[in-house]
Amino acid sequence: MAVEGTNERDWHRWHDDYTDPTSPLSRRLATVQARIREFLDAAAPGPVRVVSVCAGQGRDLLDVLAAHPRRADVTARLVELDPRNARAAADAARAAGLDGVEVVVGDAAVVDRYAGLVPADLVLVCGVFGNVTDEDVRRTVGYCAQLCATGGTVVWTRHRREPDLVPRVCEWFAAEGFEPGWLSPPEAGFGVGTHRFTGTPRPLDRGGRMFTFVDR
């Protein structure tokens, strides 16, 4: 996962921690995958549209889809700036025979990247909120009301370091017409949440920008 304007961190090597099953990143991934699996298990019959913001190598979605009985129903767009990560995601989708998965190399913060596939039934905003300002977290939550279909689900992540922003993130989702679904406990050491959109999707703000990663 990467965004234009920040190049200090190597987002390809960042994924190396996934190989350690005891790492916080690996445990968070397993939690996100469980939420995606639950969503697909409960999804109504018919087509399912998914978008992933800062998709990285797509492990959260692709690993679940590869073995899920609803895989053929899913049309997904994964947006990722780092071409190495995008290539890994595309290779994984192709190897799993996931013909409905499209990987786009580009700045995931640009709203236009999702045109034609939103409002979506599942919106993944994982690995974003911990790398942007609080103001941009709030802005992105607002944009989720454009990306998400009525009755659709957003899965998001955020670290629990102090000051813990997770309670405010939940408040911001509520203010945009989302109802809480699931939230990881504080003792997990990371934040993973799901929210279901109960409102009417807003028109897509073509040309809009959701966030900018903060250099570390």
Rank of each mutant, 00 (worst) to 15 (best):
L124N: 01
P167Y: 06
F173G: 12
Q57Y: 04
Y114M: 05
E135M: 10
R158P: 00
Y114H: 04
A34W: 04
L147S: 11
H15T: 15
D99P: 01
G58K: 06
P201I: 08
V141G: 08
F39G: 00
R35F: 11
L62K: 07
D73C: 00
A67P: 00
A55Y: 02
A188F: 13
P83E: 10
R70N: 03
V53Q: 05
G189I: 09
D17V: 08
H195M: 14
A115I: 05
D17S: 15
A67F: 00
D73A: 04
A109R: 09
D99R: 13
G100F: 06
V64A: 01
A109C: 12
R13G: 13
H15Q: 15
E171W: 07
D16G: 09
L147Q: 14
Y143K: 04
R28G: 12
A90P: 05
A174I: 10
F129A: 10
T200H: 11
T133H: 09
T133V: 12
T19K: 12
V105F: 07
D215Q: 14
H159G: 09
R94C: 07
W14D: 12
R13L: 15
E135L: 14
H68D: 01
A30V: 11
P119E: 00
F39Y: 06
E102A: 14
T140W: 12
E171S: 07
R49S: 15
W156E: 05
T212H: 15
D136S: 12
A86E: 00
D91I: 12
A44F: 02
V3N: 11
A115V: 13
T157I: 02
D136G: 09
D136R: 12
A145R: 10
P180S: 05
C126D: 05
T6Q: 14
L81D: 01
G199C: 13
P180A: 05
G207L: 13
P119M: 00
R71F: 02
A149L: 06
A145P: 03
H195C: 12
V137P: 04
E8W: 10
P69N: 06
A188T: 11
S52Q: 13
S26D: 13
D41K: 05
R71E: 01
H159D: 13
L40T: 03
